[in-house]
Design a protein around this nucleic acid. Structure first.
Lengths: 138, 138
DNA sequence: CCGTATCCTGTCAGATACTG
DNA sequence: CAGTATCTGACAGGATACGG
């Protein structure tokens, strides 16, 4: 081939190893979970229920912008995955309480790590965006 | 109703507290990053480039199922965010190499944590799904 | 109060063809 | 090889209304 002789001045002292993860088959476990997290409401709901159990309309009010339909769908998916628990009480107007499961808590903890990363590095990201946009504008 | 005394036979030594994260305004840093991760291709590309630098069509072949257009769009977004680096060599057929940046590596490490969670807990999730589906089918 | 059903709209990914 | 441009269809999700 051409052997362009590219120098490697980048990556000075960054953590050298990022554990490889296998997500390249459509049906592998990792892929399934990542696809679930691709739903932003999932992240919001898990984060909320990680703090305390909540009722349906309470969640709805709390998470601004989610529609009844989507909230319902998402809660059902998460219940199916065993990440949260649904309890219905046969009160006069029916009362439903959603709570996070131990399994869901362990995932929420990982998500919180991502959130922390975001807070720590958002400035670097926005700085990069500014530079990119400035370079593209000329 | 209260104090259900739910047994915790799962999660033997999981961290009891999930740090709250703030993603409930549309424009806050965390939300922006999570929205970016909501793109499944982002996760696949970062995971791939975390292993080694790659060329465009190399990535395309490696990540089965991604279209030229979407790969191009996604790479551009990630470059804009400063998560990966693009180098073009003026060879006869132009050669472009994408590599992960130190910043991108730190994020890829967090993503790998999620992937590891998926591998560890996929059985519990699938078991929960089976139970849910069985209960719903009758 | 807690959802489901229906309609309707915008978004976005795939296919295809073309350029440097 | 490394993209860009355009068209099109599928599908997610909002609004609304209704049922348990």
């Amino acid at each position: 081939m051409t052997s362009p002789g590219h120098p490697e001045e980048t990556t000075p002292a960054s953590p050298p190893v990022v554990p490889p993860y296998d997500v390249y088959c459509e049906a592998c476990p990792t892929r399934l979970v990542l696809d679930r997290l691709a739903d932003k409401w999932v992240v919001l709901i898990l984060g909320r229920l990680a703090l305390r159990p909540m009722r349906f309309n309470q969640l709805r009010r709390d998470i601004q912008g989610v529609s009844q339909k989507v909230l319902s769908q998402t809660l059902k998916k998460l219940e199916r995955d065993g990440l949260l628990h649904r309890r219905a009480f046969a009160t006069v107007p029916v009362t439903v309480e959603y709570s996070i499961t131990p399994l869901g808590e362990t995932l929420a903890a990982r998500i919180a790590e991502i959130a922390r990363w975001a807070e720590q590095h958002i400035e670097a990201v926005m700085e990069a965006q500014r530079r990119y946009d400035a370079a593209g504008a000329r």
